[in-house]
Design a binder for these strands. Structure first.
Length: 275
DNA sequence: CTGACATTTCCTGATT
DNA sequence: TAATCAGGAAATGTCA
């Protein structure tokens, strides 16, 4: 018996994503800092982990910094904790990107009004994951606390992830903008790495081996399309791009199982250990 | 402007 | 049957 709800994925998508795909001018914006265009009308001190994570994504996007440049786990904290970090903490947690993050959060702490742009709302209705959340509004509270380690200011963070940071740093050192946002595999990886906001889109099949499975293929496609400002993205097309990754060893083929993929040796940043 | 790159789009055919 | 998987081929959008 397939346990699939089988229903309205479609209607959900069209109704919830359709109208929202209007992307203002995010890419163009990149003044020194980011004050307006901010997703929450909630002061950063009250952000949930989820909102912190979203803020991180936005900063990376806006500054066109490779998402793998910083270990997201170092920011597995809520807004209160985030706001209490010192400049040094940011350096430790995010290396060369630290100053940018520090500046952004500092500014957000002082300004008072933000625009509401919800990537979260897009995800929300999607999570028909049996949780009891209405989707319309959701309070600045948290969704739930994942058992992941708490924040590790990484006393020596640059040592373990120095390779990663160095690499993308050297590339983006002079030219701060490189990756047009994230690549597809990074987008997928980031969803996987943040269970708080990924209640049912993609799931790890084998965390150690990097095997994962799409639970809501079309929903992920819509989300990807939204990120690329392409409202006609479909799983069919997304999967074609995924298949191209086999050749580059970013993904390894997993046959037999539908909707299942596995990270390959050229995919970085998905392991729990060496991120 | 040009070329490399990473998709995106479309398509035919095979599997599940 | 519908959804996926496989790739080829060509089109596109970015970026250096």
């Amino acid at each position: 018996m397939s346990i699939t709800p089988t229903t309205t994925l479609d209607s959900q998508l069209t109704s919830s994503w359709g109208p929202t795909n209007s992307y203002p001018d995010v890419p163009a914006v990149m003044p020194g800092y980011t004050s307006h265009l901010w997703p929450h009308d909630t002061p950063p001190q009250l952000w949930s982990k989820y909102q912190v994570w979203e803020w991180l994504q936005q900063i990376m996007d806006i500054h066109q910094i490779d998402a793998s440049s910083i270990p997201f786990q170092n920011f597995d904290m809520d807004g209160h904790q985030l706001c209490s970090l010192s400049y040094q903490d940011f350096i430790h947690a995010a290396g060369s990107v630290g100053p940018i993050l520090f500046h952004s959060i500092t500014e957000l702490k002082w300004s008072g009004q933000y625009h509401v742009e919800l990537e979260q709302l897009e995800l929300k209705p999607e999570l028909d994951f049996s949780c009891s959340f209405p989707d319309a509004s959701y309070p600045p509270g948290e969704i739930y606390d994942p058992p992941i380690h708490s924040f590790t200011p990484a006393p020596d963070s640059p040592s373990s992830s120095s390779a990663d940071i160095k690499r993308s740093y050297s590339r983006s050192h002079q030219v701060k903008k490189h990756n047009r946002g994230t690549h597809l595999w990074e987008f997928i990886r980031d969803i996987l790495l943040n269970p708080e906001r990924n209640p049912g889109l993609i799931k790890w099949e084998d965390r150690k081996e990097g095997v994962f499975r799409f639970l809501k293929s079309e929903a992920v496609a819509q989300l990807w399309g939204k990120k690329k400002n392409n409202s006609s993205m479909t799983y069919e097309k997304l999967s074609r791009a995924m298949r191209y990754y086999y050749k580059r060893d970013i993904l390894e083929r997993v046959d037999g199982r539908r909707l299942v993929y596995k990270f390959g040796k050229n995919a970085r940043g998905w392991r729990e250990s060496e991120k």
